[in-house]
């Protein structure tokens, strides 16, 4: 209990003194995860919609695989990305290992199936409403996908926020491919892991509370910007 109280005090002190190290860690955490969510959304949202409007052999299997990939173990993803980016790996020439870019790559692999799978479920319900209408209006496949993504955008935000939640709290993969290097690849989760390892529990809890506050803040800001739960055009 003492550690929890001390953690709260530490968190309070770190935030209100604008601790330079903390700001750097928070900034990098946000930068890596938001970049990963943006890239994953660009891939996952159209993929989810595409799977809804297209009928092809192995479609059900593809969807089942996609759903299964939501549970992809981050440590395994980290290991695979590590092997691919390491000096002896096929992409070693790019020198990306232990950089924020490697962390983004790992997060994209982890987040994309989640965003695609949730968006598939959201859009499937909308497609049930729109199917006959969009065919009747002669919308091409791409136009159908665009209409579904646009009209389902508020619900799709949930998919993106779920991806953000998974990314910002992820530690296994980015620890492996980022290396938790001070002032270079250290983010909130890897910092918490490090402080816990050092037995510095109060500080670790302080960072944890900041991480939770950060996740909640991003959700609130996103809902506020998108006017979810307020008067909308639908």
């Amino acid at each position: 209990m003492n550690e929890l109280t001390q953690g709260l005090l530490d968190a309070w002190r770190l935030i209100f003194t604008f601790d330079a190290d903390l700001m750097e860690i928070v900034g990098l955490s946000l930068k890596v995860t938001l970049t990963a969510v943006a890239i994953s959304s660009l891939i996952g949202l159209p993929l989810g919609a595409w799977l809804v409007v297209n009928r092809f052999r192995m479609r059900r299997v593809t969807i089942a695989v996609l759903n299964s990939l939501m549970g992809l173990p981050p440590v395994v993803v980290g290991l695979i990305v590590y092997l691919l980016l390491s000096r002896s790996g096929p992409f070693g020439v790019f020198g990306l290992l232990f950089t924020p870019t490697a962390m983004v790559i790992a997060q994209v692999i982890i987040i994309t199936p989640m965003i695609a799978s949730i968006s598939h479920q959201v859009i499937r319900d909308l497609w049930a409403d729109y199917h006959d209408l969009l065919i009747s209006l002669n919308a091409s496949r791409w136009q159908r996908i665009k209409a579904l993504l646009w009209d389902g955008r508020r619900a799709l935000l949930t998919a993106m926020l779920a991806g953000f939640g998974r990314g910002i709290g992820e530690v296994g993969a980015i620890m492996i491919v980022g290396g938790n290097i001070d002032h270079h690849t250290r983010v909130l989760t890897t910092a918490i892991s490090l402080e816990t390892g050092k037995g510095n529990f109060a500080f670790a809890i302080g960072l944890g509370l900041i991480l939770i506050a950060l996740a909640i803040s991003v959700n609130l800001v996103t809902h506020w910007i998108s006017k979810t739960e307020r008067a909308s055009t639908w």
């Binding site: 909308l126 729109y130 006959d132 209408l133 009747s136 055009t233 639908w234």
Partner: peptide
């Protein structure tokens, strides 16, 4: 052709 469904399908706009 124009088609009007029994239950009007309106876009969420």
């Amino acid at each position: 052709q124009g088609y009007v469904f029994q239950t009007p399908v309106l876009l969420r706009r």
